[in-house]
Design a protein around this nucleic acid. Structure first.
Lengths: 203, 203
DNA sequence: GCGTCAACTGGACTCACGGTACAGTGGGGG
DNA sequence: CCCCCACTGTACCGTGAGTCCAGTTGACGC
């Protein structure tokens, strides 16, 4: 027993799976309560409305995603202490991870939320925004470290380059989803990796 | 008078504006008919359901987008006959165009549709898919031309590189939308342009 | 053993929205 | 003069979100 909020997290599990597969609007509370084997009243006991569910899902998703990046680049750092090579290894690991996802992809909740944001309140929108800003900061920091050692061959805005990691992942997932192919996202990440190789490799 | 389908295109105008601002689900038929000053019956006379509306919107959007790319790269070609420089100019023009959009962005319908695709039928999904495949083909063709003259410094899959144009635009628009900033999409395109410069520039 | 509180169940209800059906209408063309 | 296209207007249905609330069940403190 995981304590008092056993049901709550079960709801989140079911909801997340359904939302990633079909989108937020297409997921009814009815099917969530059926999947979680609770009553409608039970659902609204935990979440005052669908918006509260979205927020909780997003919070959890962002936390998991951040932990994933932490882990990924920590492993990369173990393999190579140089920030540039660490970055290259980390991106490779990320690409491999996306490829291994059996269902194809987790289908980033961020993009999904961004394009339906009028369904949600300011809290959800802000959460989304802060997540991306967090990734910007994370990757910008890594690129700064790299740039100190390897002078970039072309001048680039490091904030924008940091955003590009998120952007390439998001964009790749959109392609993957729309094309119904399997490794567009990982392919896009590998292309981005090639970019970094060209950008930071010494002349 | 533009002919028999005056009202139909007015509906599409209103709907497109609303959908780009708020998303498809958040746009009610009620508000569309109010905006277009017609009756509900009138709406369903032109579109059998919301799905038909989505399909028509997507068709029109893709057509406009393709015409835009045609025009953009035709203008670029006038300025420079070399395929590589033409590409660089075209991307610059694209970035400038995105920046000039007063409201910030058109908010790509493709990504929006991709993430809510369970609301739509196979026709809509296929339309979406074909649009992206069309862009892949277009840009792949251009990159092939370039690669014939300028040998890439690193080996890249040209299909994936073609997809990257769409991906960077889509991803940039997602960032822009989520961050509520103004030129993320154009910044991302310019970064991609730098990528191409590094990739194809002679040693 | 008794009360109480959290975590529900279940049912009745409202409202918004998508969608159907269909009868009627006005105006331009043959 | 009639017909038909492009609607209007109204009535109606189903679904799903969200509200309200009365009642149940089981763990825990006393």
């Amino acid at each position: 027993m995981t304590g008092k909020t056993d049901t709550r997290s079960r709801i989140l599990d079911i909801a997340e799976a359904a939302v990633l597969e079909k989108g937020f609007e297409a997921t009814s509370i009815e099917e969530i309560v059926a999947g979680a084997e609770i009553s409608r009243g039970g659902f609204f006991y935990h979440f005052k409305d669908k918006n509260a569910l979205a927020r909780a899902m997003l919070e959890r998703y962002i936390e998991v995603e951040n932990a994933l990046y932490d882990d990924l680049f920590a492993r990369a750092r173990e393999l190579n202490d140089d920030p540039f090579h660490c970055m290259l290894i980390g991106l490779k690991l990320l690409a491999e991870m996306l490829e291994e996802m059996p269902t194809g992809h987790p289908g980033c909740v961020i993009a999904s939320t961004a394009y339906q944001d009028r369904l949600f309140d300011d809290g959800v929108r802000e959460l989304n925004r802060q997540a991306i800003l967090g990734w910007r900061k994370r990757f910008r920091g890594m690129f700064e470290e790299i740039a100190e050692i390897y002078e970039p061959r072309e001048e680039v805005n490091l904030d924008a380059l940091g955003d590009m990691v998120s952007g390439v992942v998001e964009g790749g997932l959109v392609l993957q989803r729309a094309l119904r192919e399997h490794n567009n996202a990982s392919e896009q990440i590998m292309l981005f990796r090639t970019y970094l190789k060209l950008l930071f490799s010494p002349k």
